[in-house]
Design a protein around this nucleic acid. Structure first.
Length: 578
DNA sequence: GGTAAGACGTA
DNA sequence: CGTACGTCTTACCT
């Protein structure tokens, strides 16, 4: 499980209570407290872990019934592995929701959890924190734990139930060979952390503060009064009531002031202040979310930034990243790139980024078995340009940037299960035109049409769709008589196999790369995963060999009907990768 | 202190 | 009324 642990450690049983609004779920874990930078680790069943920072633990209480039980059994003190193993059945029985197990079995139905299974099995009422007259969280949880302790044998049968469910769903292999082994890989990445230069950010912060103040002044001047530009409500009042700007779109509570609306006001209605507000929002967002926030999260002991990768929250099988989220570091704008510049390699090292090229479209080509797409990728063509040429029956060199970008919008739209309505909105054409547009696409790419129809059929017949590894997403709403709900489920049925298979692919690649790095010949470390990209920190002299290794392992992680291409870049900082 | 809504950063 | 996330701010709740 975990070989090398440093610093003071203490084992405790903890109960984590989720807010009542989420159903009063309870969650029991084994906490291993340890030194910075990661804080306690919660090990959930068979090594599922919950990583939390100490100060963010909403509640941590030793459960009396469980504590007694533990004391009665020689669990604590030897090694972590045996301890966790011994605790496993108890933990399993009380775990609720957001667990990998329940997730693998039933990612689309958050309410259906192992806690409910346990309750059903034991005839036990799983405590609900906001139940009528119940003492907040602890007592019923403790009661439940004590009862479970007395019924260990029943609990053990739950384990078998879990295994059976996994096997029934064909998920044993995914669980045992991908998700479980990935845990120590993610843990290594979190512990490694990434270097961020607080001085670069501090300087940028100063600059942004000045610029924001100037923008705010301009906005107030143009609006004839001072107000809080950060408040959509106040801005809305100024723009649409005081200045009588035309209302472009409504939100459920008022008038929308999002960046598209402001862009329209600027260009179509000559509202000069709109541009300033957009600029203000952009800078304020980057300053608040990254420039100011990131330095505060740098670990005092490692001097680095350590994220937490969540393995069990997404519906598609992707990872997510929190505290901080290092999967959404800006990249599109000049200020964004200046933030990336603060992410850097230590002296004598480089950051190496390896990203899958057009991975979702390649997976679509594979899943739909599209001859045209496969051939285009085999030739390493500009896929959007090829799509445009094919759709509109023109030569490739006739494709203008505008036409190409429309084809690109369609390609993405297909991946997201887009409707004619959605396309019309995205490309700025009428719904009828969009319909013609899409018909043209499907006429040229009939296998894609077939693929979409097939996924919808599967979703309706099975109640779920699957990724290449068999990972499931349940879509009960596919049967809904509510058109919006049903449409959403239909788009999901199209998108999840693509997005989820890409997630499967990179997870398998991470395992392969990790194994190669673990053999001791490299000092390089994997630091980040950003959905289709892996970021490494590598001693300069290893950059060449590591690049070769990473490219090979990522490209051969799965064998598809299309070739897979990985692009590599390296540099001193995340902003100057070449 | 907690939450909803709006907005916006990434793939 | 194209997917998947996490975080910020305001505004309002208890």
């Amino acid at each position: 499980m975990r070989e090398a642990l440093s610093g003071p450690e203490r084992l405790a049983v903890a109960v984590l209570s989720e807010p009542a609004s989420s159903g009063g779920a309870t969650l029991l874990g084994v906490a291993l407290t340890r030194a910075e930078p990661r804080g306690p680790v919660f090990y959930l069943p068979v090594g599922h872990r919950y990583l939390c920072c100490p100060d963010q633990l909403p509640l941590s209480t030793v459960v009396p019934g469980l504590g007694d039980l533990l004391a009665a059994r020689p669990l604590i003190g030897h090694d972590l592995k045996s301890t966790v193993k011994a605790l496993h059945p108890l933990v399993l029985a009380l775990c609720h929701d957001t667990m990998l197990a329940s997730y693998l079995l039933n990612p689309g139905r958050r309410n259906h959890s192992l806690a409910e299974l346990a309750a059903e099995h034991l005839g036990l009422q799983i405590p609900v924190a906001d139940g009528p007259g119940s003492d907040p969280e602890q007592r019923p949880v403790a009661d439940a734990a004590a009862r479970l302790a007395r019924e260990l044998d029943v609990v053990l049968s739950l384990e078998r139930l879990f295994d059976d469910r996994l096997a029934q769903a064909g998920l044993t292999k995914l669980f045992a060979q991908v998700e479980m082994p990935l845990i120590p890989v993610l843990d290594g990445m979190e512990r490694a952390g990434i270097l961020v230069d607080p001085e670069v950010l501090a300087a940028l912060g100063q600059e942004l503060a000045t610029e924001l103040a100037a923008l705010e002044g301009k906005i107030h001047l143009l609006c004839g009064e001072t107000f809080n530009v950060n408040s959509p409500a106040q801005l809305s009042r100024i723009l649409f009531e005081k200045l009588k700007c035309p209302v472009i779109r409504r939100t459920k509570t008022g008038y929308s002031t999002d960046s598209d609306v402001l862009l329209s006001l600027e260009h179509d209605h000559k509202v000069e202040v709109a541009r300033h507000v957009n600029e203000y929002r952009h800078l304020a967002k980057l300053k608040g979310t990254y420039v100011d926030a990131l330095p505060r999260l740098i670990s005092p002991t490692t001097g680095r930034l350590h994220t937490t990768f969540n393995q069990v929250v997404t519906a598609t099988g992707r990872l997510s990243s929190v505290d901080p989220n290092l999967q959404n570091i800006p990249v599109r704008t000049p200020v964004g790139m200046r933030i990336r510049r603060a992410f850097h390699a230590p002296p004598g090292h480089l950051l190496l980024s390896a990203d899958y090229s057009q991975i979702e479209l390649r997976i679509l080509a594979h899943l739909a078995d599209s001859g045209f797409l496969k051939a285009a990728f085999a030739r390493d063509d500009d896929i959007h340009r090829r799509t445009a040429a094919r759709m509109f029956g023109m030569a490739e060199d006739q494709v203008t940037p505008d036409v190409r970008s429309r084809a690109k919008a369609i390609n993405f739209g297909i991946l997201y299960g887009m409707s004619a309505y959605g396309l019309s909105r995205e490309v700025g054409i009428s719904q009828d035109e969009a319909r013609v547009f899409m018909d043209q696409y499907f006429a040229q790419f009939p296998e894609v049409r077939t693929y979409i129809d097939q996924q919808l059929k599967r979703a309706r017949e099975n109640g779920f769709v699957t990724t290449l590894t068999g990972r499931r997403r349940y879509l009960p709403q596919i049967q809904s008589t509510n058109g919006n709900e049903r449409s959403f489920a239909e788009r999901t049925a199209v998108n999840t196999p693509v997005q989820g298979s890409a997630a499967d692919l990179i997870k398998i690649a991470m395992l392969a790369v990790h194994r190669r790095l673990a053999d001791g010949r490299f000092r390089a470390r994997m630091l980040l995963q950003i959905h289709d990209e892996l970021v490494f920190e590598v001693p300069e002299e290893e950059a060449g060999p590591l690049s070769d290794l990473v490219k090979i392992e990522m490209e051969r992680a799965m064998t598809l009907a299309v070739n897979i291409r990985v692009d590599l870049k390296a540099g001193r900082s995340w902003a100057d990768l070449k």
